[in-house]
Design a protein around this nucleic acid. Structure first.
Lengths: 132, 132
DNA sequence: ATATAAGCTTCCAGTCACTGGAAGGTCAAG
DNA sequence: CTTGACCTTCCAGTGACTGGAAGCTTATAT
């Protein structure tokens, strides 16, 4: 299967597949006589795995770790769970940050009348800072 | 005031101040005889404004827009509010995405016993995909 | 006076995870 | 036989910095 078909099968763009190969996330593809990359059904499985993990916000480096764990039949489920729990805590931290940002922005916009007058608490508060 | 003092006064690292100058977010600093950049109290104000807006997640490009609005005495508060409301909606979208990711991860980890056995629903689901 | 350390300058490279595009080879259809 | 859709490689750009090298200036300590 050529890279284009592999891309549409897996959902990972051809460009990105080559990129994953270049950084060593996936092994170099076997080449056909014309130099084209050739992908097996197993390769597609791997690409789908990567795609799903990336959609869940795992970094490419983390995905590399997950792939190793996936291929390693002797690893324990505790290893995998630890990585996932760490990632949950990162996600929760980011959510909390964004929620705090959201509250501040809502407060600012609520106090801005948003008409054709020039005075605007949003700019005033950005100049004065969070406590002023 | 040298760039180091400007950095500690404003909270923006010296390196970042130079970077902001290089991309045109702030005008080129006036130089002393020895070539060192010289900052006024007003410049510090601007840097603080930038810092606060960045902390609220505005992109550097958006901060550029906010700075223009800040300096433009003839602008209306509606202009500013529109930019802020758009940003709130972006933040909310991102929060929703992260919450969905979080739920999926929690579901996965809940179903993974996380002991020394090798079978792990996290890896299985990453391989099978979100619906399988 | 001198040594040293801190602070400033510029410029280049690296980060992360791609993405776009140019230049050129290959292949299938009309 | 030509067009267009593939494929190849390599280089550059994104966003927002950050690190580091090489070299100048200034402040401090002896």
């Amino acid at each position: 299967m050529n890279i284009g078909e592999a891309a549409s099968e897996s959902g990972v763009p051809a460009k990105t597949i080559r990129y994953y190969e270049s950084i060593g996330l996936i092994p170099p593809a076997i080449r056909a006589e014309n130099g084209y990359r050739n992908y097996s059904v197993f390769d597609i499985q791997t690409l789908k795995f990567i795609q799903h993990a990336r959609r869940l916000g795992f970094s490419v480096k983390d995905v590399g770790g997950l792939l190793e764990l996936w291929r390693d039949k002797s690893r324990t489920s505790a290893d995998v769970k630890a990585l996932a729990l760490k990632h949950i805590s990162d996600v929760e931290k980011r959510i909390a940050e964004l929620q705090s940002i959201r509250m501040t922005l809502i407060d600012l916009t609520d106090r801005c009348h948003g008409d054709d007058r020039p005075d605007c608490p949003i700019l005033e508060d950005l100049a004065a800072g969070p406590d002023g």
